[in-house]
Design a protein around this nucleic acid. Structure first.
Length: 398
DNA sequence: TCTGGGGTCCTAGGACCC
DNA sequence: TCTGGGGTCCTAGGACCC
């Protein structure tokens, strides 16, 4: 079939968290809404277009955003609801084609090559997807259509809000050339500054720049990628989806922690949460890493790789305590502590059980069983409950 | 204004091996 | 006596994305 050259759709939900909150509470419609952490150290996760007009941007400290919007505009996030609605969106897309790559909770690439007999044009196909989401879920979505993932993703940005943008086959370079480098996937604040130093402002400027100088200044991977993209060659977004290499938890505290006992208790809770998530995903980590952010926001990490997977939450906690003590946490205090399991290996695969690990694994399994049947709050450690724990609830419940 | 949480990937130096 | 080159793993930090 002629004229069906643009077969990559990038579908991106508009202000997704905000729009889901509006489904939950219709009084939030047609006004400024900011979703994000409501504590004194929160940031904006999603802002309505009304709030954006007032200057609110994603990632902005909530303390700043609050001053830009009317009182009552800030809403705490409900991630479980976003996940549920996201699943509904993807069910709808599955109804069109199985060739879907889920990028995040609110984004997908869709290869519509197999739908050419069902829709007269790629544009008609993209509009059909937007309509299906609108009619079934009452949610706005924007769509970019192009020959490659990278260009389709940039096009969906141009389609917003609630629109569709097609970059016709053959016009990719004309589309890319005048765009600012910051709009390219992979160019953030730091790379933007370095490109500015080189006198590079647009993607066309990259295309005209000597490749060797670019890779020398930006590194071979990034420099090579950007140069190729600017020539209209490679697509850095092509290829398989992400594979899970690590699972992590972290927490920023409302008030900096200064006592090592409090930090240890935080690590203990994180070890339990991490273990539960690892277990659910069917992995066990070989490397344990602790992340610490000091009060001045400087951040360090310490990791250790073991000869055998670290199977139990008790072993993870023991490792984490040691790693924490190799930082300046006790002396300087911390605003954030994080814990991650890297070098994941499948729980199913053959592996050596450490002597003494077995009982702890059995305890973890038992705790998991209780949580599954009675809810995530049903069982915890004695050390995590009680009057001195920040999030501890009434002990009588336990 | 004062900076979340969960991830991936890259770089660079050092250790170690052949 | 002093020294190659390549490859892989580990660790730490940083950039970036949603």
């Amino acid at each position: 079939v002629d004229g069906y050259l643009e077969r990559i759709v990038h579908l991106d939900m508009d202000a997704f968290f905000v729009e889901v909150e509006r489904l939950r509470d219709p009084s939030l419609r047609d006004r400024s809404v900011v979703v994000g952490g409501t504590g004194n150290r929160g940031v904006v996760a999603s802002a309505s277009y009304e709030a954006r007009q007032r200057g609110v941007t994603s990632g902005m400290p909530m303390a700043h955003a609050r001053r830009l919007v009317p009182p009552g505009s800030v809403v705490a996030p409900h991630h479980a609801a976003y996940r549920e609605v996201s699943d509904s969106v993807f069910s709808i897309l599955e109804g069109f084609t199985p060739s879907i790559e889920r990028i995040s909770v609110d984004e997908a690439f869709i290869d519509i090559g197999g739908l050419r007999l069902h829709y007269p044009s790629p544009t008609a196909c993209g509009e059909a997807m937007r309509s299906a989401i609108r009619e079934n879920l009452d949610l706005p979505a924007s769509v970019g259509v192009a020959t490659t993932r990278l260009v389709a993703k940039m096009a969906s940005r141009d389609a917003k809000p609630d629109g569709l943008y097609l970059v016709a086959a053959g016009s990719e370079l004309d589309y890319l050339n005048p765009k600012p480098v910051r709009s390219l996937w992979g160019v953030g604040e730091a790379t933007l500054a370095r490109l500015e130093e080189l006198g590079i402002a647009t993607i066309g400027d990259i295309a005209a720049f000597p490749q060797e100088t670019l890779t020398r200044r930006l590194g071979s991977a990034l420099g090579g990628m950007l140069w190729n993209v600017a020539q209209g060659r490679d697509d850095p977004l092509a290829g398989g989806g992400p594979v899970s290499h690590s699972i992590s938890v972290e927490e920023t505290f409302e008030i900096d922690l200064t006592a090592i006992e409090d930090m240890d208790r935080e690590l203990l809770g994180q070890a339990d949460r991490l273990t539960a998530r690892l277990r659910k995903a069917g992995f066990v980590p070989t490397t344990i890493a602790v992340k610490v952010r000091y009060p001045d926001f400087s951040t360090v990490s310490r990791s250790h790789t073991y000869s055998e997977p670290v199977a139990s939450s008790a072993a993870i906690y023991t490792a984490a305590r040691q790693l924490l003590r190799s930082t300046d946490a006790q002396r300087r205090g911390v605003r954030l502590i994080g814990l991650s399991g890297d070098g994941l290996v499948s729980l199913e695969g053959p592996r050596q059980l450490g002597l003494g690990d077995t009982t702890w694994e059995e305890i973890d399994e038992a705790m998991e069983g209780v949580r599954t049947r009675f809810g995530s709050d049903a069982v915890s450690r004695a050390r995590l409950v009680g009057p001195d724990h920040p999030t501890g609830e009434s002990p009588s419940r336990h």
